[in-house]
């Protein structure tokens, strides 16, 4: 990155002093990175090859945990649920947040509406989960009360296997405020000349949006998709509290990888197995991010390129 200077005499000494100063300034993070990231990851890799019941020591068992994982129906179930959740909620959140941002971008009273959409994203998920468990209550929930006023007999959302996962996704959509703010900011940055040029080409508003706005904000879409997905892969507290009486909800459709990992580590006496699950989860997240980056090369438009 920096130009390499010939290291001779005074310059070499300066160079060394600079290295020392630099590493000194970043030293808190060197320690933080090593102790709270690197060491745990290494430990987790080691544990994944052990039988480690938490209350007793870890014993080496080779690749047992990974082999067991292949035939573990609960692993596949939770992985499938998680993938479905990520696969549905990310596109849904992305489309909705871009739509809202597009509406906000050219509206009067933008600050107010933006604030209204943004505020819920700051609400603790634990509180969000209990709020929605109340809203979605089959008998007394607000959703069904409102539906009743227009003559619709609402379903028991959280007890229905087909509606439980959508309910979790709705809570995710409720919390998209940060993405919306980001999209609005990106849309504000689109140079006005581009729209003027598009006008000259006779484009309507939707084509302009498609041909000008979307390409211009595509780096932000990439950023949001990646951060949202990393978050969605870890989803835990919402389903955990939403279905506090029946784990994972009806048919366990909302029993996710992190919850299964937690159960194995801290309830089922299988920290070793949980660590194998953790590594698989890590690899999946890395692979997913890699794929998104690869795909994005073709789709994302960077200014100046």
């Amino acid at each position: 990155m920096e130009p390499m200077l010939p290291e001779s005499g005074l310059e070499g000494r300066n160079r060394l002093r600079q290295d020392l100063a630099g590493w000194l300034w970043v030293s808190p993070w060197v320690v933080g990175f090593a102790v709270f990231m690197l060491v745990p990851i290494a430990m987790s890799l080691y544990y994944s090859f052990t039988d480690f019941p938490l209350l007793e020591g870890a014993l080496w068992v080779g690749t047992d945990n990974y082999r067991r994982l292949l035939g573990d129906a609960d692993f596949w179930l939770t992985l499938r649920n998680t993938v479905i959740f990520v696969g549905v909620s990310i596109p849904v959140c992305t489309v909705i947040s871009i739509t809202i941002a597009a509406l906000l971008n050219r509206s009067r009273g933008r600050d107010f509406f933006q604030a209204a959409i943004f505020l819920p994203s700051l609400v603790p998920l634990a509180a969000g989960a209990i709020i929605f468990s109340w809203l979605f209550n089959g008998e007394y929930g607000l959703v069904n009360r409102v539906l009743a006023t227009v003559g619709i007999d609402g379903p028991p959302w959280l007890l229905d296997r087909n509606l439980a996962l959508p309910a979790v996704i709705v809570i995710g959509v409720w919390g998209i405020g940060q993405a919306v703010v980001l999209y609005v900011a990106a849309m504000q940055d689109v140079p006005e000349q581009l729209y003027e040029a598009a006008d000259l080409d006779g484009m309507g508003p939707f084509r302009k949006f498609w041909n000008v706005t979307l390409p211009m904000i595509s780096p932000v879409i990439l950023f949001n998709v990646i951060t949202m997905s990393i978050g969605a892969f870890q989803a835990f507290v919402v389903p955990f509290m939403l279905f506090d009486r029946v784990k994972g909800g009806p048919d366990r459709v909302a029993y996710f990888s992190t919850h299964y990992l937690f159960d194995n580590a801290f309830a089922f006496d299988r920290m070793g197995y949980a660590s194998a699950l953790a590594w698989v989860q890590l690899l999946i997240v890395l692979a997913f991010t890699g794929v998104v980056f690869l795909v994005s090369r073709k789709l994302v438009f960077y200014r100046g390129s």
Partner: peptide, 21 residues
């Protein structure tokens, strides 16, 4: 670059070892 990469590590992956630590 390594620092940025750590942002992709999900907390659940390290929570068990962190607890032991």
């Amino acid at each position: 670059a390594l620092t940025l990469a750590t942002m992709m590590i999900p907390f659940p992956v390290i929570m068990g070892p962190l607890y032991v630590l």
